[in-house]
Design a protein around this nucleic acid. Sequence first.
DNA 1: TCAAAATTTGAATACCTGTTCAAATTCAGG
DNA 2: CCTGAATTTGAACAGGTATTCAAATTTTGA
Lengths: 207, 207
Amino acid sequence: MTPLADGPESTTLSPHVRQKRQRRRAEILHAALRAFRENGYHATTLEDIAEHLGVRKTALYHYFPDKEAILYACHRESLGEIERMMKSARKLATASERLAYVIREHVRIMTETLEGSPLAFEVTAFSPDRAGEIIAARDRYERWLRKIIDQGIKDGEFRAVDSKIAVFAVLGAINWIARWYRPEGTIHAPELGREFAEHLVGGLTCG
Amino acid sequence: MTPLADGPESTTLSPHVRQKRQRRRAEILHAALRAFRENGYHATTLEDIAEHLGVRKTALYHYFPDKEAILYACHRESLGEIERMMKSARKLATASERLAYVIREHVRIMTETLEGSPLAFEVTAFSPDRAGEIIAARDRYERWLRKIIDQGIKDGEFRAVDSKIAVFAVLGAINWIARWYRPEGTIHAPELGREFAEHLVGGLTCG
DNA sequence: TCAAAATTTGAATACCTGTTCAAATTCAGG
DNA sequence: CCTGAATTTGAACAGGTATTCAAATTTTGA
């Protein structure tokens, strides 16, 4: 019994057990991210994820109510990091500095936390209610990026580009990392972040 | 009978019938691209595709041996356009001009021919043999792009960037179009191509 | 108009995978 | 240790969907 599944990691669990449970949840998310990276959400089976952990697929149901909940948890974690990053970007003064910082940090999140998993690719996999939340958070991020660029234009740092299009270019370059980046490859994450920042910010400053 | 399915649109078909058959194949590909754009390859059912055509799913088997073959045909068509574009880019002299042209044309292909369908997202859906051909063509395109950038660096037009990373930034921005572009939206394809070209080429020239 | 060919259909099949559940196993902690 | 809780397991179920195939329908071309 005890189909706790998910819910508030709340009550009546001894600290030790609760810790262990949370660690296992993290391991499952980790394995899921790797699997999603290889094959995408739909083509990934629960057995693929379980196999990474040396366990049978039914064991996963002790931690998540269904497959979608795993994808959802991955998104939540990812969006949380993005929002933390948005806050810490406040300390930068100019639009160029801020945008460069955001690009470097987003690249770092993609490569470190997500292992380059193409989370942003899988929005359509959610049932309507959950999709709403994810899409809202994504839109908030996009609008925030757009404001940075508009500010840069107003301050004369950037050319008078269409900021909507520019944001899509930036996010496209970053999200696409999921399609080719491999942690064990020759391209290293910090350099990747720097190069992307120079390329994408540079394209706005010069004319 | 006559399970011709695919194969060389070759023999023993009266011209009129052959033409009609090819038109139907094109219609199927068209419908498939639209469906793939909405939901991705795996989440798209043969019935989804058939519905667009007002026909039952089993009818599709008269034109393609299986679902994967439909995706394969979409890729072939897309890669054909890319290769034509590569040839026509020869007439441009400088690396900047050539790269800008390629970006504008690739954007046009994404928005017009493919209706913004995320073909490049679905490479992992193929069985090994077919995957090889698609990946080889994609790699050829990437190497060709990289040469343009390396030439630009040598000629002093571009900064001394890592051309591999720069190519990924360019392709990421372009392929990501599939995730947000809608033909009926406010952003128009030609402007999109121009903005992308200025942004992504500009990021290499200035510094 | 008519026969042969092409196309479409509907029913049936087979397989895959997400999910449930009760039983077995492992673990926590006094 | 020992007991109850937590975790894992294996078997079975359920729903969906790609695929097959023979029959029905439509189209071709003379």
